[in-house]
Simulated assay, not measured.
Amino acid sequence: MVLYMSISRQGCLGRIRMGDIDECEFPDVYDCYGAVGGLFIVSLLLFITLLRREKRKTKEFFEKNGDPILEKINNIKLFKKDDLKPILRSSNVKGKGSFDEVYKGRIGDNNQLVAVKKPIYVNLPKKDQFANEVIIQSRVIHRNIVKIIGCCLEFDIPILVYEFISRGSLEDILHDFKRVPISLDQRLHIAAEAAEGLAYMHSKTSITILHGDVKPTNILLNDDLVPKVSDFGISRLIAVDNQHTMSVIGDTSYMDLVYFQTGLLTDKTDVYSFGVVLLELITRKKASRFDNSSLLRNFLDAHTNGKTVIEFVDEEISATNDLELLVSVADIIVQCVNLDVDKRPEMIDIAERLNYMAKRARSI
């Protein structure tokens, strides 16, 4: 039987060579080849169609998210979607806010440790607004400001990639699960350097940059407790005709009442918010505008009535040998939250005063 089949196949091949295909004993083999070939062509056409559709969709994302503008920035990287997919997993989530969640991961040929910020809600931004935010952060290069590494435009909402800051936020170490003991000189050091970052934005760049949402969750800390101002979602380049906004955004517990009522955003708006942060830093209590026992209101009432600041100060630092330091910090807080905007100090002056206090605290 084996010999017979072998001969039959040879005969079939012989007849094929002579052109007598119709008489071949195995026509189904060639029908199969034709079907496979047709399926391959259909699959190839479908693949090309899907590839073109994906490219068109990607191009739309790029145009919508300001790619023509961002291409001109040479100190940030435009990442591909595939670069971020391994990081954007639930197991890598390190924090979650009202508007976005942050993932920790490594990226690039050098395996750099980064924080990837992904918006939670699909609220399509205007391309100029997003591009403006990236431009702001690419211009701000300072040791007390979180560095932006790049972004990815291949999503409905563009995703930002930052340097990873190890200790989390000031909110974490003051109030949450990462709460740790902090000495007076460490607190003044954190306050002074955070003020340095904001002062740089306000006074030491070619165009004034406002943050607009200064609060403990937006001040990150590295292993050495060096603060880095972060989250520039509300931030904007100041322009003479563009200081007012109809949509006041931010945490009202730290928000300047003047800004809240008028929509006028100025450098003194950040000063007010910083004053509330400074109050939290020395008291280790949460500020809340909607709490009947509002920390700021009670502090201002006590200050007005000539009461000592010690009753508000965190017990970890209340036993200092230099009570005058705490009194000086209290004076800065009161000046920062003054409802008369013109009487608030400049951030650069606040930074200088806090730096002096931090050095003095170290020598105690």
Rank of each mutant, 00 (worst) to 15 (best):
L3N: 10
Y4F: 10
S8G: 07
R9T: 00
G11F: 04
E23R: 12
D31P: 02
Y33A: 00
L39C: 09
F40D: 12
L45W: 10
R56P: 07
F61L: 06
F62V: 07
N65H: 01
N65G: 04
L70E: 04
I73C: 07
N75C: 14
L78W: 06
L88T: 11
D100C: 15
R106F: 12
Q112L: 12
V122T: 09
P125L: 01
F130C: 01
A131D: 05
I135N: 14
I135D: 13
I141V: 14
H142Y: 08
I145K: 05
G150W: 09
F164I: 11
P181N: 10
Q186R: 14
G197R: 01
Y200K: 12
M201W: 12
S203K: 10
K204F: 13
I209A: 11
V214Y: 12
L225K: 02
F232N: 02
L237D: 06
A239L: 00
H244Y: 05
M246T: 13
S253G: 14
D256P: 13
F260V: 08
L264C: 02
L265A: 03
D267W: 02
D267Y: 03
T269L: 05
D270R: 13
S273F: 09
F274V: 04
E280H: 14
R284L: 13
R289L: 09
S294F: 06
L295A: 07
I310F: 11
E324H: 13
D340A: 13
D349N: 06
M357I: 05
I364W: 13
